[in-house]
């Protein structure tokens, strides 16, 4: 087991339910979790975080700034543009995934997700 104490994960979702599930699963797995309730807050949390998170997990449908907007904003910033971003999505339609890809998402996690799948997805991009 690797030490994950220092691995920070930023999760951005407007649903408190999803947020608490993410937090529980990630903390259980030893990650350090930062959370934002929408794209705007997600970006704020990203700026505040020192060191920056190793992964960003974001929902797509959110008020103020949606997931696509968040991804695009992150990819534009030199300091953060290489952070892997995973999108959480219930939509199984390829169109959404394609849009997320175009925006610069690294991968996706399909809701409902299991803790194992979540952690596996993070490992996949932080190994």
């Amino acid at each position: 087991m690797t030490t994950q104490q220092e691995i920070r994960v930023l999760t951005v979702d407007d649903s408190p339910t999803i947020q608490i599930m993410l937090r529980k699963a990630l903390e259980e797995a030893g990650y350090n979790v930062i959370q934002g309730c929408d794209g705007v807050e997600g970006l704020e949390k990203l700026q505040e975080a020192a060191p920056p998170p190793a992964v960003i997990i974001t929902d797509i449908n959110m008020p103020r700034l949606d997931g696509f907007g968040l991804i695009e904003a992150v990819r534009k910033q030199e300091a953060y543009k290489h952070i892997p971003i995973l999108v959480l999505t219930t939509e199984s339609d390829p169109e959404k995934k394609q849009r997320a890809r175009q925006a610069g998402a690294t991968g996706w996690i399909v809701k409902p997700f299991s803790a194992e799948a979540l952690v596996a997805a993070i490992r996949r991009v932080t190994a």
């Binding site: 087991m1 690797t2 599930m21 529980k24 699963a25 797995a29 299991s114 490992r123 190994a127």
Partner: peptide
């Protein structure tokens, strides 16, 4: 790369 053991994730959220 070093072998990565699966983390002992036991929360069964879903």
């Amino acid at each position: 790369p070093p072998k990565i053991e699966p983390a002992g994730v036991k929360v069964n959220l879903a």
